[in-house]
Design a protein around this nucleic acid. Structure first.
Lengths: 161, 161
DNA sequence: GATGCAAATGCAAACCATTTGCATTTGCGG
DNA sequence: CCGCAAATGCAAATGGTTTGCATTTGCATC
């Protein structure tokens, strides 16, 4: 595009990624901004809080956050995760590289892992479930992160798997 | 009561699998029985209903089901799953072989798949997150089962991944 | 067997993330 | 600049899960 002397970074990003058929509102843009700058999946509450923090002068409703997360999900630019360790859903933009996380059962931090094992199972599914059309998947690894593994006083591991 | 000659199958199973330190109550045994005879992960509501169906003469409280599912989980004989497609948790006994499921986004049926890809990633995690102690994992495949894939009128796929 | 006490149960109310109804505002095509 | 469908804010509803408390029950002990 002819643009660009240095041209605004975020507006361009928005323009490049904004899903077709989704109306651009102030609230949606801010929610997108929060998600975009997040380093890990966020809960609706975290997103709502972030909105208040950065633009405390403007108003936001919790329901708007939920409705727009759903809109983003339907538009295909967002993934909703539900982890066994959390009692609420986590949301993450989908544009960039596909990732899974290792979740610490103690501190609840999420560490991205680089590999995705879908290829390894795809063939098997073809065989075991002929006709099943795979559209997505979810994987989490549970355990204890280096920081929490040391302190051996682990409270009732509740080992999954 | 006096033992049988033919020694009942289920009592033996119970005895063999019952976790140490968990008090045996009528309700817990019945909950175990329901889980044991289930062919797929069940919700708390399904378990509760099954209790009423089989032993309608006796009383059961919803809270007892939840409390005992938690007790079983802590005792390490049960896994709690939260799928993105369901709005409630699903529970499954852990004794038998470790399994994952392919979940149909339309009819919500769960089809067990035979492979578990953990081995494939274990090495990678060692490398990427040295010191992370893996204790478990969760994986689901989403898509459309043969029955639902045919009927092409798929409502808003909401593709995960 | 009978007894006692901690643990388990039933019931109802509390919780809390998420959803929904409705009146008002806003984006955006004409 | 207008008009209307779509989006928002607010508050109330929803629904799965948890919790407080009085009562019952498993089980170890006598």
């Amino acid at each position: 595009m002819e643009k660009k002397i240095h041209a605004s970074s975020f507006d361009e990003i928005i323009d490049r990624h904004w899903p077709l058929g989704v109306k651009k509102t102030r609230q949606r843009i801010e929610i997108y901004r929060v998600l975009y700058s997040a380093k890990e999946p966020l809960s609706a509450a975290q997103i709502f809080q972030a909105l208040l923090d950065t633009k405390s002068s403007e108003s936001y409703a919790f329901s708007t956050v939920y409705r727009n997360l759903l809109a983003f999900e339907k538009a295909g630019i967002l993934v909703k995760n539900i982890l066994s360790t959390e009692d609420n859903a986590l949301y993450e933009l989908k544009n960039e590289t596909h990732r899974h996380y290792a979740v610490c059962l103690k501190c609840h931090r999420k560490f991205p892992i680089s590999t995705c094992p879908l290829h390894h199972i795809a063939g098997d599914i073809e065989k075991t479930l002929p006709g099943f059309k795979v559209t997505g998947h979810q994987l989490e690894i549970y355990g204890y992160c280096p920081d929490c593994a040391d302190i051996s006083a682990e409270p009732a591991p509740v080992s999954l798997s």
